[in-house]
Design a protein around this nucleic acid. Structure first.
Lengths: 251, 251
DNA sequence: ATGTCTTTGTGAACGCGTGCACAAAGATGG
DNA sequence: CCATCTTTGTGCACGCGTTCACAAAGACAT
């Protein structure tokens, strides 16, 4: 999971579990694809396969939204697209600012997946004066000094942070102070925010590390008994014995 | 959570819960920062704060790795960095290929967070012949035709897919056939892979949609009773009545 | 050596999420 | 109008993950 919620232990919004909310965009994507192929209805089984989930889970997820299916038939694709869009708040326009226009920020600005879902890149912001005015993805980059004014003028409530780690918390604080209440953080830092502000983080290197863990496990299993046998200190022996080359020992 | 595991219901690796594995990189990052400041030891409380988690959770997580702390003192920073690195498999070199060198792929190639964690970008691959030979992040882009040979020559087991959605499954199949067993997918599609292959996905637009959901909720609550009251059809009335402007009605 | 104080490691309870399995609902055909 | 068949919606049980709260372990001072 490259994701991570922050704060808010079990929001349960109106009764829609967080896990369900996280899957709704997945369903929506699958439904949109069906819609483009003019498929009128889908069964939970088909849609679940397209979204890569269990069909019982899908039905239960939809049951939180209401009874939108027809027994013996399935779900009406167009109708469901609308219902999920409305539930996710995608029927309205969401102006978004991206702060930190480096490689990643520029890639995000160019990313087509935003606009297609009702997200509009209202402004690009960077601390480098040399960037100011330079167009990225057709939008001129503005300087950090004007951050508050930009947020205010555009009624922005969602901010994307793509700055280096060192600048992220400061940028976050300014965004929040200016009225932003949802933040998508790409910087490898833990952001602290006041109550009422949602943060989701995407950390590319964390994802790879999780894959590496499983990869190592697979390699260690198929060749069990090789050098990488990972002894796992037997608890009573305190701390001494581990695999090999113990980096630094504690006192 | 921008992440999502695929397949493998409850791997439980050697006894380390999946949720714990997902947090280890977080701890590692916080510990590395402490290490650079030459802090010798940390308490679970301090480290938990730095990583943005509960201290009890952190202690339980570490307990799965073994008893690496000292009661009354805390954890030795250097020692813990080593232990977690070893557990995650970061003490070895992981050659990685990135397929799809568009805006995002190029940003990933330039991303510093990979190299700093033992991940080495072994090759960049793109289907566009015009890209071939062009250096990105100092590495010449190679054509998709040579994918299998590249994987094989470099002993790559981790692949990153940053292609358009339409090409993702096909690229995935070729990667897997060539020997890749872990995939990080940035394309907005569900990838199907055989057993034994791990897929993690990062979908930028999904994260924003989840934020939008909560954002809408916040806005709807503070102005409860306004036009956006969201009636939620009373179950018995079938499907007709919802908020307003029902896009398309089912049969 | 003994007592005090700090902090770990974990037993136990709780809650959320998942999946099974089935009854209810509706479509469809005779 | 009735029977059959398909597919939804959900009650229930199970397991994982989180959190509390505390006993055990060790450091440190006297």
């Amino acid at each position: 999971m490259a994701t991570g919620r922050t704060h808010r232990p079990a929001t349960r919004s109106r009764g829609i579990p967080e896990a369900t909310v996280a899957r709704l965009p997945l369903y929506l994507r699958a439904l949109t694809a069906l819609s483009e192929r003019s498929v009128p209805t889908v069964s939970s089984e088909e849609l679940a396969a397209a979204a890569g989930v269990n069909s019982a889970k899908l039905r239960k997820d939809f049951s939180y939204l209401g009874s939108y299916g027809t027994r013996g038939v399935g779900y009406d694709v167009e109708y469901l697209v609308y219902q999920i869009s409305r539930e996710l708040g995608l029927t309205q326009d969401w102006p978004v600012v991206i702060v930190g226009i480096g490689n990643l920020g520029a890639a995000l600005a160019n990313y087509g997946g935003f606009a297609s879902r009702g997200f509009r890149v209202a402004a690009l912001i960077d601390a480098d004066p040399a960037m100011a005015g330079k167009p990225v993805a057709g939008i001129p980059v503005q300087h950090t000094d004007d951050l508050e004014k930009i947020i205010d003028d555009n009624g922005v409530s969602i901010g994307v942070i793509a700055t280096p780690a060192g600048a992220a918390q400061q940028v976050c604080d300014r965004l929040v102070a200016a009225g932003v209440t949802s933040i998508l953080n790409f910087a490898p830092t833990v952001l602290s925010v006041p109550d009422g502000v949602d943060v989701r983080k995407v950390d590319l290197s964390i994802e790879l590390q999780i894959l590496a863990f499983h990869e190592q496990r697979k390699a260690g299993e198929e060749a069990a008994g090789e050098s990488a046998a990972v002894p796992l200190a037997p608890k009573e022996s305190g701390k001494g014995p581990d695999g090999d080359v113990p980096a630094v020992m504690p006192a």
